[in-house]
C-alpha cells in the first residue's frame, strides 16, 4: 500500500517546504529567491495531493475517516491557504507559519503511523461523507490560519505595549470565510445525521464541541462589529476559539464525556 512509504514521501515534502520557506524569507538578498521558493512550496503541495489521490484509490474509499487521514488533508489545505494569502498580502511570516503548521501535521503522521484500513462502516457510506469532512477541513485550515495571526498579535503586544492590532483585519477575512465553511460543515452534518442516525442533532460529544467551536467564532464575529471590543480581547477570543476547535477535532476522543460517542471511527 502506498502509505507504507509515507515517511519517505513526507520527508521529501518537508524538505521542499523548508527550502521554499527559507528562500522566501531570504528574498532581500536576491529577488529570484522567493520565486524559486514558491515553486518549491507548490511542488510540495502537488506531491502531497498525489499522495492523497493514491491513498484514495488504493483504499477504495475516501481517505477521510481517521484522524491521521484528516491530518493529511489539513496539511494540504493549510499550505494552500498559506500560499494564496502570501500572493494576496505578501506577509512572509504568515506563509512561514502556515507551512510550519502544515509540516507539523505531516510530522505527527510520521510519529503516530496509522494502520490504514480499507473498511468503512455502513454509517459512513453516504454522499454526505466527502462534502461534510472536506468543508470542515477547509474551515479548520482557514481558522487555524486566523489563530496564527491572533497569537502573533498577542505576542507582539506582550513585547511592545504600544503595538497596534493592525493585522486583525486580515484575521477577520479569514474568520469570515472560515466561519461560512464551518456553518456549511455543521449543517451538512445535521442533514446527514438525519439520514444516518434518525435525528439531525443529538448532542453527541462531537456535536457539542462542534457547536462550541461555532459559538466561539460567532462571538468573535460579533465582537468585531463596530469595534465594540478591545482588539486585545478580540485576539484572545480568536486564540481561545482555536483551542476549542482542536478540542473538537482531537480532544473529544479522550474526554470522559465521549465514552458513548457515535463519532469515534478509529478503533484503538
Amino acid at each position: 500500500m502506498v502509505l507504507t512509504h509515507f515517511p519517505q514521501h513526507a520527508i521529501v515534502i518537508l524538505s521542499l517546504w523548508t527550502i521554499g520557506i527559507l528562500l522566501i524569507i531570504s528574498g532581500k538578498y536576491n529577488k529570484t529567491y522567493p520565486k524559486i521558493g514558491q515553486a518549491l512550496l507548490i511542488s510540495g503541495i502537488i506531491w502531497l495531493s498525489i499522495l492523497l489521490t493514491n491513498l484514495w484509490i488504493s483504499l477504495e474509499r475516501p481517505p477521510l475517516r481517521t484522524l491521521g487521514e484528516t491530518r493529511l488533508w489539513y496539511s494540504t489545505f493549510l499550505a494552500v491557504v498559506g500560499i494564496l494569502f502570501y500572493w494576496r498580502w505578501k506577509y512572509y511570516w504568515f506563509v512561514a507559519y502556515c507551512f510550519f503548521m502544515a509540516g507539523l501535521f505531516l510530522i505527527l503522521n510520521i510519529i503516530f503511523p496509522e494502520n490504514f484500513n480499507k473498511s468503512l462502516m455502513p454509517a459512513l457510506h453516504s454522499p454526505w461523507f466527502v462534502p461534510h469532512v472536506i468543508v470542515y477541513i477547509i474551515a479548520y485550515a482557514l481558522l487555524g490560519a486566523s489563530s496564527i495571526i491572533a497569537f502573533k498579535q498577542i505576542f507582539d503586544n506582550y513585547l511592545n505595549k504600544n503595538n497596534r492590532f493592525n493585522l486583525l483585519k486580515l484575521a477577520d477575512n479569514l474568520v469570515y470565510i472560515g466561519f461560512a465553511f464551518l456553518t456549511l460543515g455543521l449543517l451538512f452534518g445535521a442533514l446527514w445525521a438525519k439520514e444516518a442516525w434518525g435525528h439531525y442533532w443529538t448532542w453527541d460529544p462531537k456535536e457539542t464541541w462542534a457547536f462550541l467551536t461555532w459559538a466561539v467564532y460567532l462571538i468573535y464575529i460579533h465582537s468585531r462589529i463596530g469595534n465594540s471590543f478591545r482588539e486585545k480581547t478580540a485576539s484572545w477570543i480568536l486564540a481561545f476559539g482555536f483551542v476549542i476547535l482542536l478540542m473538537c477535532w482531537f480532544g473529544v476522543n479522550y474526554l470522559p464525556s465521549a465514552t458513548n460517542s457515535v463519532h469515534t471511527y478509529s478503533q484503538q
Binding site: K169, N173, Y176, F179, A180, T183, L184, L187, A190, Y200
Partner: peptide, 16 residues
C-alpha cells in the same frame, strides 16, 4: 437550516 445555508453562502460571497 436552508436559510442558514443561504446565509453562510452570503457570508462567503460578501464577506466583510
Amino acid at each position: 437550516i436552508f436559510l442558514m445555508l443561504a446565509g453562510a453562502v452570503y457570508i462567503f460571497w460578501v464577506g466583510s
